[in-house]
């Protein structure tokens, strides 16, 4: 097919391997956006990714960049180690909500507080996907999971943790926004945010995180299409989309 006809094709920053994600899982969308951004910025050959423990444990199979695989929750610490010795490389972590907001809470908060020049892609799908849909720190009140079978009872199981709001209070955080992957418009906005988060890093403007409201059709027990509706109707009210922190220097970035 003539290249002048081409409107969109699979990013070259992706490897040829099909993902292991369930059909309709928006992890794949988030991966694709990161790949597109790395490619557009021309930094694929100087990027080192840090994969988490959780559904994205195999993220290293899909990006055509160097990759390391962190212990559960420790990706920001590993990324710190890499970035400190190789400050001219692009270093990102890709973490789910169990990884980042539960077991890795200490690592993410302090990476942000130190203003580490790393980019964090945070997938919030309100449950532990890889282990079969247990309650996560982001599980909505009343939401049924395999470890909150009667619905999350906030009296005994606490309330969801809002990471973007929390991290935006830290001086070291340069860029911290929440986006959603539930429709084409929001996916476009998410991509722009991811681009800004990487631009923040290459300009040395501090810690950058993009929280992405995502789906988990399999563990939610919904079709992929209904999962997107669930994000729109239930997750966005609990986790409002928005720019939680954009430092003045980052506001000047033109994409």
């Amino acid at each position: 097919m003539a290249t002048e006809n081409l409107v969109y094709e699979r990013p070259e920053a992706f490897t040829e391997m099909p993902t292991h994600y369930c059909p309709g899982c928006t992890h794949g969308v988030a991966h694709r956006l990161v790949a597109e951004v790395l490619e557009e910025m021309g930094v694929v050959n100087k990027t080192i990714g840090v994969a988490p423990v959780g559904c994205a444990v195999f993220a290293y199979n899909y990006f055509d960049t160097d990759f390391v695989e962190a212990p559960h929750g420790r990706a920001p610490a590993m990324a710190t180690g890499i970035k400190r010795v190789l400050p001219d490389r692009v270093v990102f972590t890709y973490q789910g909500d169990g990884d980042l907001a539960s077991i890795g809470m200490g690592e993410i908060v302090h990476a942000a507080a130190r203003g580490e020049n790393i980019t964090v892609i945070f997938i919030n799908n309100a449950n532990y996907g890889m282990t079969g849909g247990q309650m996560a720190p982001t599980t909505l009140p009343g939401m049924k999971t395999t470890s909150s079978p009667n619905g999350r009872d906030v009296e005994t199981q606490g309330y969801p943790i809002k990471m973007s709001e929390m991290l935006s209070t830290l001086e070291g955080t340069g860029y911290c926004v929440r986006r959603s992957l539930h429709d084409p418009k929001n996916i476009r906005l998410a991509k722009k945010a991811i681009r800004t988060a990487f631009e923040t890093q290459v300009r040395g403007l501090g810690f950058a995180m993009v929280e992405l409201l995502s789906t988990c059709p399999t563990n939610w027990g919904m079709t992929p299409v209904n999962s997107l509706k669930f994000v729109e109707e239930h997750m966005i009210p609990a986790f409002p989309l928005g720019d939680y922190k954009i430092s003045d220097a980052i506001k000047q970035i033109k994409i």
Binding site: E4, N5, L6, E9, H27
Partner: peptide, 21 residues
């Protein structure tokens, strides 16, 4: 119409989109 919205929502980067010049 080659608007590429299908490709934008595709979680598996499975769709290539073309448009008549």
């Amino acid at each position: 119409t080659g608007c590429a919205i299908c490709a934008i929502v595709c979680p598996d980067a499975a769709i290539t989109v073309f448009r008549e010049t």
